[in-house]
């Protein structure tokens, strides 16, 4: 890891990244060898999808499920309370 970066992917299994400075719609971010164009403004501390997360599938951060997509979330889209639901009952039983 070197240099200043604008987002953090906590675990390699994650399908979202957390931005550490506000990013703008249309900004291009490099994730590994691929380029992702942001579909919306992403405020500091918020998350964007690293790849398409289909409706009903899990949002992964820390290498763990943190919620379920309630709509398709395209790569570069903002993943937050408007398109992700809590799964607290589900994960507490595991």
């Amino acid at each position: 890891m070197a240099g200043t970066r604008r987002y953090v992917v906590v675990d390699e299994r994650d399908n979202v990244a957390t931005v550490v400075e506000p990013l703008k719609k249309g900004d291009s971010v490099e994730v590994g060898s691929t380029k992702i164009r942001l579909l919306r403004d992403i405020p500091e501390g918020h998350k964007f999808a690293l790849s398409m997360i289909p409706r009903g599938s899990y949002v992964v951060k820390y290498g763990e499920w943190i919620g379920r997509a309630t709509a398709d979330i395209a790569a570069g889209d903002h993943a937050h309370v408007h398109n992700v639901e809590d799964i607290v009952d589900e994960v507490r039983k595991l």
Binding site: P43, G45, V59, K61, Y62, W65, V81, V84, I87
Partner: peptide, 26 residues
């Protein structure tokens, strides 16, 4: 779960209680 994550948490980018807890137990 009431108001958890808090409005401040949500404004700051935390989406679910699971995400908040996972960040804490790290």
């Amino acid at each position: 779960r009431e108001g958890n994550p808090t409005p401040g948490n949500i404004a700051g980018g935390l989406t679910t209680l699971v995400e908040k807890s996972l960040g804490g137990v790290r």
